[in-house]
C-alpha cells in the first residue's frame, strides 16, 4: 500500500519516492494522499507536507503557493517554493514578514482589494514559515 509521491519546484524535482501516505496542507484543510484516493486537484496553502512510512513521519517539507494532483497510485505536488524544514531560516522569514507588513500598510491605503488579499495570503505563508523556522531551532 504505497503511492508514488513527487514534489516538484520550478527548478527541479525535489522528491520522488514511494510513501505510505502524505499529508498535504490543502487550502481548505489538510488532506492525506493514500493509495486509491479519488483523482483530485487541490490548491495548497503555505504549510508542511509530511511523508509517512507506516505511522512514522519520515520527512517533512515546507511548500508555498502550490497545488497537488492526486491519482490512485500517484501524487504530484507542484509548488513555487519547496524547502526542507531545517533549511528554513528564521532571519529571512521574519524579514520577509516585516517587508510584507510594510507593503500591506501601503496597500491598505489604496482601494486595491485584490492586492490586499494577495498580501494577506503571503503574510500568512511567511508567518507559517517563521513559526516553523523557530520551532525547528528549538
Amino acid at each position: 500500500m504505497s503511492i508514488q509521491l513527487e514534489i516538484v519546484s520550478p527548478e527541479k524535482v525535489v522528491v520522488s519516492q514511494k510513501v505510505d501516505m502524505a499529508v498535504l496542507p490543502g487550502l481548505e484543510g489538510d488532506i492525506a494522499a493514500m493509495e486509491g484516493h479519488v483523482p483530485m486537484i487541490l490548491l495548497l496553502r503555505g504549510g508542511v507536507i509530511h511523508l509517512y512510512e507506516g505511522d512514522k513521519i519520515t520527512d517533512s517539507f515546507f511548500v508555498e503557493s502550490g497545488f497537488a494532483e492526486m491519482q490512485e497510485t500517484k501524487c504530484t505536488v507542484l509548488a513555487k517554493e519547496v524547502k526542507k524544514l531545517d533549511e528554513l531560516s528564521e532571519e529571512t522569514a521574519s524579514k520577509r514578514l516585516a517587508d510584507l507588513e510594510e507593503s500591506y500598510k501601503v496597500a491598505s491605503k489604496g482601494n486595491d482589494a485584490e492586492r490586499q488579499r494577495e498580501l494577506i495570503d503571503e503574510m500568512q505563508n511567511a508567518r507559517v514559515m517563521l513559526e516553523l523556522a523557530t520551532s525547528v531551532k528549538k
Partner: peptide
C-alpha cells in the same frame, strides 16, 4: 480520469 477540485475549478484556475 475525472477529477475532483478543491476549491472550485474557477478558483483553481484563477490561481493556476
Amino acid at each position: 480520469a475525472e477529477y475532483l477540485f478543491e476549491p472550485e475549478p474557477e478558483e483553481v484556475l484563477h490561481r493556476l
